[in-house]
Design a protein around this nucleic acid. Structure first.
Lengths: 186, 186, 186, 186
DNA sequence: AATGAATGAGATTTCATTCAT
DNA sequence: CATGAATGAAATCTCATTCAT
């Protein structure tokens, strides 16, 4: 709710969300984020008590983005439309995935090495995504909705890893087509 | 290849391979690795010029493990046997994956944030794996061998991410059965 | 002496006096004091140019308290009554002393490490206390009034240190009885 | 037991003991201590994991000094001799007390504001001193040995505070004579 | 007068790397 | 070859003080 003074807090979380995705949590310094947000380093601590607090806020930003993406998809008429819309979004982002991977996936992978609560925060977002997909498959009358949902999200996470590792956006496009056909076949 | 002095070099690379997988590259200090290998810190630099050199050696160790796994699978009679053997290996490692993810995948994800050559080293191992799978599908007479290979490895990487994020080894087991059926269906 | 604006200045000095006693000068931040006084941090500087100015005001508050204590004792009929009244006051405060020590003594001890004038301010209060005791002993006809006064105040400061160090309020009570007997014996 | 490389660790604890006494714990930076010991700041952390660890070591140094002082006094023939020897030592140190107070007392006063274990460490030294004095009074056949011991140490702590506050070493000398007479009178 | 926000200097701490023996 | 010790650059974090409104 704090929106005074040019939305500096928001600028910081946005910059953090982007930079942490690009550089990873451990490699990114507060100075990196402060610079990207054009805020003096010392000032960051006015808004966030620790670096982890800022990381948490950035995770929240990614979660917000995910939520609004899913909300937009919910406007589509049928469950298969929605699922295919999700896949289309992934394909649209393939250049970013090739360079930095899926934000949720790479953050989850990095944070899972730690035992603080941050890993649970990002896991919650991943779970929200799987849950959403499950609801779509369920609406399509599938008994194995959960398994299908896991398979879909896993397919995306997996191809993100390969797309990123091989720096080949085209891989995402190919897999996207495969997933579209698969959804249609259900 | 040097095997002098009580295999200290090997102890270091082995320890590095394990600890880097468990803790991640950035969170792991040289001291962590030295301790795990029971080698004095100062001594590490006799064997490795920099930390990155040691990371590279650890990547090599993971590559060796992968190569010998594939070599063992090559002993199996038919390509589907080999592919299903690969999947079985993944399922067998599901507890490790739940705790730390796939070594190759998590290392690739972390190193891809950097642009210093190490990311290309780990990418090479990932490529070797895809190539091997492609050869199997090719031997099965599939025209779309490359695409199938990518899909298989992506499925594994993806379920590794979810297994790790949710700390649920069972996800890997379920996906393993799905992949087995899929291979049989080809 | 300014009493405008809801006595904010007074609230600040009172809070400072208390918090500085409890936490010590160096460990206490301006924010701590502002919070305790329920005054916005930025506002403190309207009343006090620097942190040291506020510390000085807090010292003044302790001095005021001391002065009014002595003024009240001056109402008692005889010098021994007054001295024993002083001792009784110390014993009454023993729980506070056990937790945080004598305010004057602990502040003096901490400020004496500095050479910036504040140490002289607190020394003045300590001197006022010794002077008052000297006047009582003098009125009792003692030639060694100064020496006795120093001994009395030192006894209190010393037992405050021990009471605080050992967290044993009872020490103060025992020493109080000893001092009462001693005063009676003069 | 580590005594290599020019006893740098010892140099650090000695410097810390001195500088912390002179400047107080909170006002003293690691850089201050490192400079006094002629050791690079970064190197301090090779010997002490945190600043508090170094403070603890410095407290230990003060404790060692106290112990050896008492051990030397134990060589004196009679308990009164020993107690008066203790007092003589205090008087001999009066210039230091006038400038910085009693090391044990001022450290105890400052550390008692904190709730970590360091306050208990310094309290232990203070207790050792009281215990030693109690043993002497006990050996003199006094039933009230504990109370006398507390009174003696309190007298010293108290006069240290005044000597320091007023910057008057002579106060310690006067009180020393008073305590000598008092011991003789028992 | 009042105050949320801003700032920068400085403190603690970490760690890859180097050095002396 | 081996190794405990050393080093300095850089990162996180704190806080008195100032600023803009």
């Amino acid at each position: 709710m704090t929106r005074r003074s040019g939305g500096k807090r928001e600028r910081l979380t946005d910059a953090a969300a982007r930079v942490l995705h690009e550089q990873g949590v451990e490699k990114t310094t507060l100075a990196d984020i402060a610079r990207a947000a054009d805020v003096p380093v010392g000032n960051v601590y006015y808004y966030f008590k620790t670096k982890d607090d800022l990381v948490e806020a950035a995770i929240g930003t990614h979660g917000d983005a995910l939520r609004s993406t899913l909300a937009a998809l919910d406007e589509l008429p049928t469950p298969p439309d929605r699922l295919k819309g999700l896949v289309r979004g992934w394909v649209d982002q393939r250049e970013l995935a090739a360079r930095y991977g899926c934000p949720t996936g790479t953050l989850a992978t990095e944070l899972d090495k730690r035992a603080d609560g941050l890993d649970r925060k990002i896991a919650a977002h991943m779970r929200a995504l799987v849950d959403w997909a499950e609801r779509q498959f369920d609406a399509m009358g599938r008994d194995d909705a959960r398994e299908l949902a896991v398979a879909l999200i896993a397919a995306y996470q997996g191809i993100s890893v390969l797309t990123n590792t091989f720096r080949e956006p085209e891989l995402m496009a190919v897999e996207g087509r495969r997933l579209q056909r698969w959804i249609d076949s259900l």
